[in-house]
Write a protein that binds this DNA or RNA. Sequence first.
DNA 1: CTTGACATCGAACGCCTGTTCGTGGTATAC
DNA 2: GTATACCACGAACAGGCGTTCGATGTCAAG
Lengths: 225, 225
Amino acid sequence: MADKEALSDRQQGILNYIWRYTQERGRPPTIREIGQEVKISSTSVVNYNLTKLKEKGYLARDADVSRGLRLTDKATQIYEAVRNTVRGLVRVPLLGDIVASQPIEVGHDTPFSRYDEEDAIDLSSAMLPGKTDDLFALRVRGDSMIDAMVNDGDIVIMRRQETARNGDMVAVWLTPGDTTTLKYFHHEGDRIRLQPANPTMGPIYVAPANVRIQGKVMMVFRQTA
Amino acid sequence: MADKEALSDRQQGILNYIWRYTQERGRPPTIREIGQEVKISSTSVVNYNLTKLKEKGYLARDADVSRGLRLTDKATQIYEAVRNTVRGLVRVPLLGDIVASQPIEVGHDTPFSRYDEEDAIDLSSAMLPGKTDDLFALRVRGDSMIDAMVNDGDIVIMRRQETARNGDMVAVWLTPGDTTTLKYFHHEGDRIRLQPANPTMGPIYVAPANVRIQGKVMMVFRQTA
DNA sequence: CTTGACATCGAACGCCTGTTCGTGGTATAC
DNA sequence: GTATACCACGAACAGGCGTTCGATGTCAAG
């Protein structure tokens, strides 16, 4: 409220409209179009509020030019976050390494703090079905994942979850041997079959109590150069 | 030349200008601004060419509206590729499958025709060092690449080249057996050592005359969901 | 040569659109 | 009360801007 750059409802509405209109039509609205949207009959009032928005740093204006409006970077950033989720890049945080002899330790981060991470991987969201905000990436260390066709240095994109459906490739923590592996998950009666991705290797069978699912593998990739 | 949707120099210039102007200013140009840019004194000529561009599917127009221009998706894709190279995504064309019993056949495409491809993969350019315009992607079919830790359905990002340095992972065409495989390349004296990525498997040795390098593997990735 | 499709020009018309100006209502401060 | 921001209104002006129309030039087909 005491914020020097706080926006009135009207100004907020105007800013939202400019953003939506520009997204949908590829050009900014006219003053009269804005007025119609936010129920202002007078163009001068719209102009007045646009000037305010400019003073507050949300808007850039080109004088004497039709549709001479542009959101500043400051304003754009507020909207961009949403836009990227809808269509574009997803930033997946690279949270650490998979070590075969330890469970995967990843804390829940707030949506904001995630982007403070130095290491992250940008993926096209088209590659990743479903929600993208519970994804994380891990780098594989050692060659203990060969049964999953994954090797040292590979990066695994995972979705945080503790249950799995048959056929999912999951990261599982096997309590008996204290090891983490990537396997295809199949619940068969009173036991769980873990099938390697490598078709030349056979499955292993474990009791449900000895399996803790860490996440579902969405993607694996490897950079060789 | 006989292409029904070929563009004259003027039309190409107009389209470029609309793209640049829109990028820089956040709004489309007016007819008169276009005319000034491409040296057309008459607004009607600009209008005439805009209509042509619309007919050819590059432009959408809103009648009786100032700056009522918009590039269609078709046109946008052409420019997006460039833009993404500068900052962000790279569109890598997915040209086909790797079949172990055939050499990789990929023709050189013009920069234009590449983007007509339906299948393409968007990658963050930060992942890929060096030039990105000679990259292509192939989908692996069958499980004949297990020695390279690559399996059916995986996608391989490659750089088109016919030579390799020691340590590069390359796609090689072995003439004796008429097979294509992915291996680490090592030139050792008068023979070539091809080392599988899978550390549990041993190398094979071949004479240089029997090896034809198809490209360098830049990245391998796998979607499991 | 004639025809017709295509490309270009200049000018005029008229709505579109930003700007300006005079006016007035509502608070808070003195 | 009065002063002073702040917010809002409507009208009028002027230049911005898309549209239309008649006229001209080119070039290949008939």
